[in-house]
Design a binder for these strands. Structure first.
Lengths: 228, 228
DNA sequence: TAATGTATAATTGTATACATAATTATTATA
DNA sequence: TATAATAATTATGTATACAATTATACATTA
C-alpha cells in the first residue's frame, strides 16, 4: 500500500530523511512551532540539501511541518481547532472502515479480531494502559486492511500521524478511559462478528468521539507554549 | 487556506510547474497511465529539473501521478475501484460540510446560497447543462467556506481534482441527471436555510451517491485504453 | 529463432554551485 | 538613545554537474 521503511528496496536518502524527521515530529523531539533549517539538518545528517528539501516538502504537504510566507519551515503548531476537525473527519472514516470490515472480513479475520479484543480486555482488567493503547491501534490497523478502501485508509493514516503528536503531549489515558476504550472495542468487535455493519459503524463513530475528550483534555496547558 | 495560483505573491517556478502539470492531468491532456519524463518537461518549459522534481513529487503525493518501483513517473491510471472509494469518502465529508454549513451560515450567507440555487434551477430548466455543473461546483465550494472545517475541505479539494479526470473522460451529464442534480441542490439549500443540519447532511450524502452513477457510467469504455 | 550477455544510452538520485531573498548587524544621523 | 539606512550574513530557490540505476540495442550462442 504505502511504500514503508520495511520494504526490501533500500531506502533512498530522501525517504530516509522523511521517515527520520517525521518520527521526530510525531514524537515531539522537534517541538510544535520549532523552526527548521535545511542546512543544519543537511550537515547533521551529512548529506546534501536536495533530498532534505524533498523530504521536507512531503512533510509540508502532509502538514506535519508548515512553510511560512518567507519560505522558512517550522514544525506545525498544535491547535485545538485542528484536533477537533481531525476527530470529526476521523470518526466518519473510521466508521466507514468498520462498516466495510464487517461486510468483507473472512471468518478467519473475525477470529483474529476476537483475539485482539481478548488481549485489549485483559490489558484493561490489569490496568496495563500502554497495552490498551497499543492493542487498540492494532485493531484499528487491522480493520483498515479489511476495509479494502485504500482512499479512506490513506487519509486515516495521515490523520493518525498528526493526532499522535497531541496524544504524546498530554498525560496517559486515565484508568477509567482505558477501561472504557477496551469495552468500546469489545462491543465493536461483537457487532462486526455479527456482521452488523450499521451497528459497527455507529459504535466506531461513538468510540472516536469518546476518544477526543481524552486527547483534548491536556492540550490547553501546552497550547500557550507550542501553539501558534 | 491553500496557496493558490491566485495569490499575490509571485509564483515560484516549482509552483508554476505544479499548477501547469496538474491542469494537464486533470484535463486529460496528459492521459492516464502516460509516462512522464522530467528532462523532457524541463526542456519544454525551459527550466532546470530541480523545480520539476519538486512539483512532480507533490503531484505524486496527491496521487495525480504515480512513481513506479524503478523511479519512473506516469500519470495515475484510472480505476473504477478508486472512483467508488472517492465517492464513498466524499459523500461522508460533503455531508459533514453541509451539516456544519447549516449550523454556521449567517443570514447573508443563506441569501447568497439561495441565489446560487436560483441560478442552477434556471440553468436546468433551460437545459444549460454546463452551467448546472458549474453552479453546482460553486455551491459546493461555498459550503466548504462556510463549514469552517479546513481538514475536511482540504481532503475534498484533492478528491475533486482526482474525480474531475473521470468526469471529463465521459460524456456530459444527461438532461435527466442535470435536472435531478439541480433539484437535489434545491432541496439541500432548503434544508440549510431551515437550519436543519441533519437533513442537510443526509440530502448531501444522497446527492453525492446519485452523482457517482453518472461518473461511473462512462468509465468502462476508457478503462481498457487508459486503465492500469 | 529465442535466449542470454554486453555495451551504450537514457533517466533518475544526489551533490554542488550560484542567484535571490530575508534576516541580522552595523553605521550614520537626528 | 532611537531610528533609518545600509552592509554583511544567512537562508532558501534554482541551475548545473556528477553518480548510480535502469532501459535499450545489438551481438553472440544454443
Amino acid at each position: 500500500m504505502d511504500s514503508s521503511p520495511m520494504d526490501n528496496r533500500r531506502l533512498s536518502t530522501k525517504d530516509f530523511v522523511y521517515y527520520e524527521i517525521k518520527k521526530q515530529v510525531i514524537e515531539n523531539v522537534l517541538k510544535p512551532s520549532q523552526s527548521i533549517n535545511e542546512i543544519k539538518i543537511a550537515s547533521e545528517l551529512g548529506i546534501s540539501r536536495t533530498p532534505i528539501r524533498e523530504a521536507m516538502q512531503r512533510l509540508e504537504i502532509e502538514e506535519l511541518i508548515i512553510r511560512l510566507p518567507n519560505g522558512r519551515l517550522k514544525v506545525a503548531p498544535i491547535s485545538i481547532q485542528e484536533a477537533k476537525e481531525i476527530y470529526e473527519v476521523r470518526g466518519l472514516l473510521e466508521g466507514l472502515v468498520a462498516r466495510e470490515a464487517a461486510i468483507r472480513a473472512t471468518d478467519s479475520d473475525l477470529q483474529k479480531l476476537q483475539m485482539f479484543t481478548n488481549l485489549i480486555v485483559e490489558a484493561a482488567e490489569n490496568d496495563w494502559r500502554d497495552d490498551v493503547v497499543n492493542y487498540g491501534g492494532e485493531i484499528h490497523s487491522f480493520l483498515y486492511q479489511l476495509s479494502g478502501n485504500y482512499t479512506a485508509v490513506k487519509i486515516l493514516k495521515n490523520m493518525n500521524d498528526k493526532i499522535s503528536r497531541y496524544r504524546r503531549l498530554g498525560p496517559k489515558d486515565s484508568t477509567t478511559r482505558s477501561k472504557e476504550a477496551a469495552h468500546e472495542h469489545k462491543q465493536l468487535t461483537e457487532a462486526i462478528v455479527e456482521r452488523n455493519s450499521g451497528k459497527a459503524e455507529e459504535l466506531m463513530k461513538l468510540h472516536v468521539k469518546n476518544s477526543l475528550g481524552a486527547a483534548l483534555d491536556s492540550i490547553p496547558n501546552y497550547i500557550s507554549e507550542y501553539g501558534e
